[in-house]
Amino acid sequence: MHTLVTGATGFVGGRLVPALLDAGHEVTVLVRSPTGYDPPEGVRVVVGDLLDPDSIAAAVNGVDAAYYLVHSMSARDDFEARDRQAAANFADAASAAGVDRVIYLGGLGEDRDQLSAHLRSRREVERVLATGDYALTTLRAAIIVGARSAGFEMVVQLAARLPVMVTPRWVRTPCQPVAIDDVIATLVGVLDVPETAGETYDIGGPEVLTYAEMLRRTGRHMGREPIIVAVPVLTPRLSAYWVGLMTDVPWSVARPLIAGLKNPVVVDDDRLSRLVPIDPTPFDEAVRRALTARESAGVAP
Rank of each mutant, 00 (worst) to 15 (best):
E110M: 09
R84D: 08
M73A: 07
V193Y: 11
N61E: 15
R161S: 08
A8H: 06
I144E: 00
P163A: 11
A59Y: 06
A212R: 14
V243I: 13
S95N: 03
A293S: 07
V31D: 15
R112C: 11
P206E: 03
I184L: 06
G298C: 04
S95F: 00
G205T: 00
A81I: 01
G132E: 01
T235W: 00
L50V: 01
I103Y: 02
R123P: 00
K262M: 10
D22W: 01
V265R: 15
V193I: 09
D269F: 14
H2W: 06
G14V: 01
T9M: 13
R127C: 01
A96H: 03
Y134E: 06
R122Q: 03
A179C: 00
G244K: 10
A97D: 04
P250Q: 07
G62V: 05
D181F: 04
Y68K: 12
Y68A: 06
V43K: 13
R255H: 06
P232C: 14
F79G: 03
C175M: 14
G204Y: 03
T281N: 02
T281P: 00
V29E: 03
R140C: 10
L238N: 09
P264E: 07
I278G: 03
D269Q: 15
R122E: 02
T28I: 02
L30C: 04
V145Q: 10
A141S: 14
D64K: 12
G204E: 02
L136V: 00
A179V: 01
V208N: 02
P174W: 06
Y67W: 05
D248N: 08
P232A: 15
R84N: 09
P174I: 04
G7W: 02
R76C: 03
T138G: 11
R294T: 03
R15T: 00
H118R: 12
V60N: 12
V27P: 08
G106W: 05
R216A: 15
T173M: 13
L21K: 05
A254E: 04
V208R: 07
F79S: 04
Q157H: 11
V27M: 10
R127E: 09
A88Q: 10
G298F: 11
V46Y: 15
